[in-house]
Design a protein around this nucleic acid. Structure first.
Length: 496
RNA sequence: GGGGGCGUAGCUCAGUCGGUAGAGCAUCGGCCUUUUAAGCCGCUGGUCGAAGGUUCGAGUCCUUCCGCCCUCACCA
């Protein structure tokens, strides 16, 4: 038996059909949520209920069998007694672990006092044809878990808990912005010019327009066009795509929150971020403390605030970001690449190499050098610095925010400067339409970007991004054992 | 892309020095009306990731390839 369709389960399927039982009926009795059945159950003994879900381990005593039934809301034991199930009894063994069933029965208890639905009518709702993962160890193989998340989800309940939590995090994040009067919007994912971040894009092509397109690396430039248009407070939660490496912190497509608020600056946005974390702590986390990679973090605002250049100097023997010679010297010490790179990028690499990992946080790192912030407004008192901050927690960059540059001439000049060092990560052309938008006048505004996946990692205690992404990108394979054996599985081709 | 590790039954895993391919669970058969990792008895189940090589003999040693994980690089 090398095929993954279990032959014994196929035989049962055929036996069911022979007994005129549809293993995949179009309609079944509508079940009520198991959690609702459990509510006040002690006062409801003998009440008839209908529950539905996937069948757990069956414990067979000949004329009596037990199994647990799980739906999205909870789990309850089902008791199958021969004397109550004259019609179903001959077929009882054709319905087994991992099948979907709907059971009509009465609420009761076992001799040991466990809440149980004593079945009077059993309807097979969907037959499972594959061997389910092992009952005790669950599904451990990480590759199989990611490739077959559907099995991971029912074999490992904590996986589902994580994604329920993720859903609630996003829901509460939306609610937080709605309460502040923000409007949720959607902007193009297919973009003729990519911008708003530094990253290699995915490329695609529109046939009818015969036009090359990029999958967005950030929604930033479109959202700020909306600020020009007078929408004043907008946010978007959406997928962005970066054609880069995969790691515990990186998936090629990930979810980003971006928000823009007119008449705000980066100080306002710091308050917004602190308010967001406070909101998430009370509504989702149930406290301000989270444990991530065995370290506890307290997310109670206010957060620590540290100046970028100070941190750089602290960790690098007083290094001055703007002292080119010292920067190159230090970069060589750290064995960082320097050839052909702009000095500010080298200096920032030093920052990332020496400072970031030590930022347990939560900490706002603020006032980044303007040279590495092409979309942020300069500090009026020191144009070398930009009004920008990033939020670090657990050494991870979780958020990025700035006072948005709204001077169209300055913006165009900075775009032109970017084009001097063209590489795969830089836009290939100047986004003239964005400059045109700014020329119509954008109010001063504060903008924010938060990596939702990383936020979820932190709040769910998941050490890898793949545990908060339902279907992380994996290399496609044709010949691993996970694929059904064509011969044994019959005609499995295509989905029509 | 660089470095390290791993891949054995449907699932979770052993497999010693190179010498007949193993266990538990699941499945199947038998007993059992209060179990909950049910229990007891019996059976079945293998392309040892793939290909090649060394050897009388390879799960084990060598080479190449595939996949996953970890780590570094880059980013959020």
């Amino acid at each position: 038996m090398t095929d993954r369709i279990a032959s014994d389960r196929l035989e049962k399927l055929e036996a069911l059909r022979a007994a005129a039982i549809d293993p995949y009926p179009a309609r079944v009795p509508q079940p009520t949520a198991i959690a609702a059945c459990l509510e006040g159950i002690d006062a409801r003994q003998g009440e008839t209920v209908v529950v539905g879900g996937r069948l757990g381990q069956v414990r067979d005593f000949g004329k009596l069998r037990f199994a647990h039934l799980r739906d999205r809301t909870g789990e309850i034991q089902i008791g199958f007694r021969r004397d109550d199930l004259a019609g179903f009894w001959p077929q009882r063994k054709l319905v087994e672990t991992a099948d979907h069933v709907v059971v009509r029965g009465e609420l009761g208890k076992t001799q040991k006092g466990e809440d149980t639905v004593w079945a009077h009518e059993v309807t097979l709702a969907g037959k499972c044809l594959r061997h389910p993962p092992e009952k005790w160890h669950g599904m451990k193989d990480t590759e199989a878990r990611y490739r077959q998340r559907y099995a991971d989800l029912f074999a490992n309940p904590e996986v589902r808990d994580t994604f329920v939590l993720r859903s609630r995090i996003v829901q509460e994040l939306r609610r937080y912005f709605h309460l502040l009067g923000y409007l949720e919007v959607e902007t193009p994912i297919l973009q003729p010019i990519f911008g708003g971040a530094t990253a290699r894009p995915f490329t695609t092509h529109h046939n009818t327009l015969d036009m090359p397109l990029f999958l967005r690396i950030a929604p930033e430039l479109y959202l700020k066009r909306l600020i020009v248009g007078g929408m004043e407070r907008v946010f978007e939660v959406g997928r962005v795509f970066r054609n880069e490496g995969i790691s515990m912190r990186h998936n090629p497509e990930f979810t980003m929150l971006e928000s823009y608020e007119a008449y705000a600056d980066y100080r306002t946005i710091m308050e917004r971020v602190e308010g967001l974390f406070a909101h998430l702590c009370t509504t989702v986390v149930g406290g301000s403390k989270v444990v991530f990679r065995e370290v506890e973090y307290d997310l109670q605002p206010p957060f620590q605030k540290r100046a970028y250049c100070e941190l750089l100097a602290e960790k690098n023997d007083g290094l001055d970001f703007f002292d080119g010679e010292a920067v190159l010297r230090r970069a060589r010490e750290l064995e960082l690449k320097t050839d052909g790179m702009p000095l500010e990028k080298v200096a920032n690499d030093i920052f990332e190499a020496t400072v970031e990992d030590s930022l347990g946080g939560p900490v706002f790192v603020y006032d980044y050098p303007t040279a590495i912030c092409p979309l942020a407004k300069q500090r009026p008192d020191d144009p070398r610095l930009a009004e920008r901050f990033e939020l670090f927690i657990a050494g991870m960059e979780l958020g990025n925010a700035f006072s948005e540059l709204n001077d169209p001439q300055d913006q165009e000049a900075r775009f032109r400067k970017q084009l001097e060092h063209v590489d795969e990560e830089s836009p290939s052309e100047l986004d003239e339409d964005y400059v045109a938008a700014l020329e119509y006048g954008m109010p001063p505004a504060g903008g924010l970007g938060i990596g939702i996946d990383r936020l979820c990692m932190l709040l769910t205690g998941s050490s890898t991004i793949r545990d908060v992404v339902l279907f992380p990108l994996l290399r496609q394979v044709k010949d691993v054992p996970i694929q059904a054996d064509q011969d044994a599985a019959g005609d499995q081709s295509g989905e029509g």
